Computed example of a mutant assay.
Amino acid sequence: MSRQRVPKGKVFQKQDEKIIKTLQELEKNCSDDFLVSKFEELFPEDWVKIVKRYEAHERLTP
């Protein structure tokens, strides 16, 4: 029986550009939660991919 694994590789394309754009949209002293919510607002399709990858990892982690 083989061991299940979470897929490797990038979760979303052009991640550096998207993170920079998200940071540019934020105020100077914002919280991590606000960063996450802004990324989710700007890139909803990528956020879904991130959540799916996280859930897959959680299912396989003992």
Rank of each mutant, 00 (worst) to 15 (best):
K28F: 14
V48K: 04
E25T: 07
K49C: 15
Q24T: 05
F34Y: 14
P62Q: 07
K52D: 01
V6A: 03
E17F: 04
P44K: 03
K28I: 14
W47F: 01
K52W: 02
C30E: 13
D46V: 00
F12T: 04
E27Q: 09
R3F: 13
L26P: 01
Q24M: 03
F43Y: 07
W47G: 00
E55A: 06
Q15Y: 14
V11S: 04
E27F: 15
R53L: 00
K52Q: 14
K21V: 12
G9A: 03
I19L: 11
P7I: 03
E25S: 09
P7V: 02
F43W: 09
R3P: 13
S31E: 05
S37A: 13
I20W: 13
K8D: 10
Y54L: 10
L26A: 03
W47T: 00
F39D: 01
I50Q: 01
K38T: 08
W47N: 01
R5G: 12
K52C: 07
D46A: 04
V36W: 11
Q13S: 13
K38W: 08
E58A: 15
A56Q: 05
V11P: 00
A56D: 10
N29A: 08
K52N: 00
K52Y: 00
S37K: 12
H57L: 12
K10T: 10
Q4A: 07
V51Q: 03
V11K: 00
E45K: 01
Q4E: 10
L23E: 07
I19V: 10
C30I: 05
L42D: 06
Q24L: 05
K8C: 07
K38V: 07
S37I: 04
Q15N: 13
E58Q: 12
T22D: 02
P62V: 11
E27V: 07
S37Y: 06
E40Q: 02
M1I: 06
V51K: 01
R59I: 04
V6T: 08
D33H: 15
E58N: 12
K28H: 05
P7C: 12
Q15D: 03
E40L: 02
Q24F: 06
V6G: 07
K14V: 15
E25Y: 15
V36Q: 12
R5M: 14
L42H: 06
